[in-house]
Design a protein around this nucleic acid. Structure first.
Lengths: 231, 231
DNA sequence: CGCGGCTTTGATGTTCATCAAGTAAAGTGG
DNA sequence: CCACTTTACTTGATGAACATCAAAGCCGCG
């Protein structure tokens, strides 16, 4: 069960500048009404596919995944999200039910802002509305882009792509802790768990990467980028 | 070369009610500034990937496709769009360049509305802004949904899926004219042209569909839906 | 300590892209 | 309008890429 945290006021939140910069203190006070902050531990479910959307969700700390289930078959990860990534904007303005489940990959803190209140703020503040539009547009574009990058490549290229992505865009380091299990990687890039492992091992044998459990170090980034292009 | 059409005023446009219902006549007059309407014939290119985004595009008549190119390899169709489908909202608020090309599949009429003017209208009219948010959210969701439906299925399931989609969601008829060439179908659902043809022929042999060139008639929709679920 | 979940490797068969080759249809230029 | 070229469509054969099955080691947890 997620813990409910002491809710700090939005106008003092460290994330205010990311989205709520152009809101007045009064508008922020409105957003605070019904606002809740909850802590989720690894593997806990935040929302379940099919539940009604009542809040705009914002990830303050941690790492979450969006998962789509599909008639008894495997789960597919649509996207993963870190703080600063406005994944919560997906669907909220066009659907009344969640089209996917959200769960925590690492311990996470999520902020729940009442959706009706948010919509009112948008109606009353066009400049803020435009910012929300930009965020929504970006997050959707990124997901569509990512899915095309993945699905048009073959397996080696897919693995290479996410390794480069984690190193360059998430951790800014050639050495990092891979936050996903092998099974989750498979669900993210549409392949079997066995082949994820097989190809990682192959990259290790070829001395492209070093692996120690979930610790990854990229030894030959050039080779990985070549695999991205031609795999 | 696309013809430039006599531009009719937005406040008299038949499509006004779809998006611009809540705008005043004055706001509509603003949107008319720099507005252009152009006619494109089948296979003409509307915008090219990489070009700067200066306008919001709206399809008034016809059928277009969004195409992503990718280093000398094949083209991939991200999505196709008919009028009423606000495909033009993809990317416009988060990118300054088109991330894809747009071209006409059938003869089409497109309306070009100055993007800066549109943004101003959004800033000044929060209710309108919320409507735009809903459209953007819907179109992005639909594309993400579609791509997941396609990419998780195997070939028979993919073909079955788009046949059912055209019959039930586009033409509302079990008999319809397939607007895409076999090659375009292949580019849309990520498979080889040969296999598109092979599987269509197979469905014909199994008396699931009747084919006459681009005329398709679905004879056994139940079987197609079963293939959607288990293919 | 034993059970279930995650990881790893090998072997096997299926699905699919690709190559090749031929026919039909649709533009193109004289 | 006809010969010519190109583009779309079609079928079969082949091999590569990949999922699936099977079996075993590993680790955390009750």
């Amino acid at each position: 069960m997620p813990e409910i945290l002491n809710t700090s006021a939005c106008n003092k939140c460290a994330f205010r500048s990311l989205l709520f910069e152009n809101l007045t203190d009064d508008e922020l006070i409105d957003l605070n009404v019904n606002k809740v902050e909850k802590k989720y531990y690894k593997k806990e479910i935040v929302v379940e596919q099919g539940e009604p959307i009542k809040e705009f969700l914002y990830l303050k700390e941690g790492l979450i995944k969006l998962v789509k289930k599909d008639g008894m078959k495997k789960e597919h990860i649509i996207s993963i999200a870190r703080p600063l990534n406005f994944i919560g904007f997906l669907s909220v303005f066009s659907n009344d039910k969640y089209q996917y489940s959200i769960s925590a990959i690492e311990d996470s803190v999520m902020c729940f802002i009442d959706l009706e209140v948010l919509k009112n703020t948008i109606r009353n503040n066009g400049v803020f509305a435009l910012e929300v539009l930009e965020k929504i547009s970006k997050i959707s574009d990124d997901i569509i882009q990512f899915r095309m990058m993945i699905d048009r490549r073959q397996l080696r290229g897919r693995i290479a792509y996410i390794l480069v992505m984690f190193a360059k865009q998430v951790y800014f380091n050639s050495k990092f802790h891979l936050p996903l299990s092998r099974k989750e990687i498979a669900e993210l890039i549409d392949m079997s768990t066995e082949n994820v492992i097989r190809i990682l091992s192959e990259f290790r044998r070829d001395e492209i990467i070093r692996i120690d459990g979930s610790q990854i170090e990229i030894l030959n980034i050039g080779q990985l980028e070549r695999l991205c292009r031609f795999g």
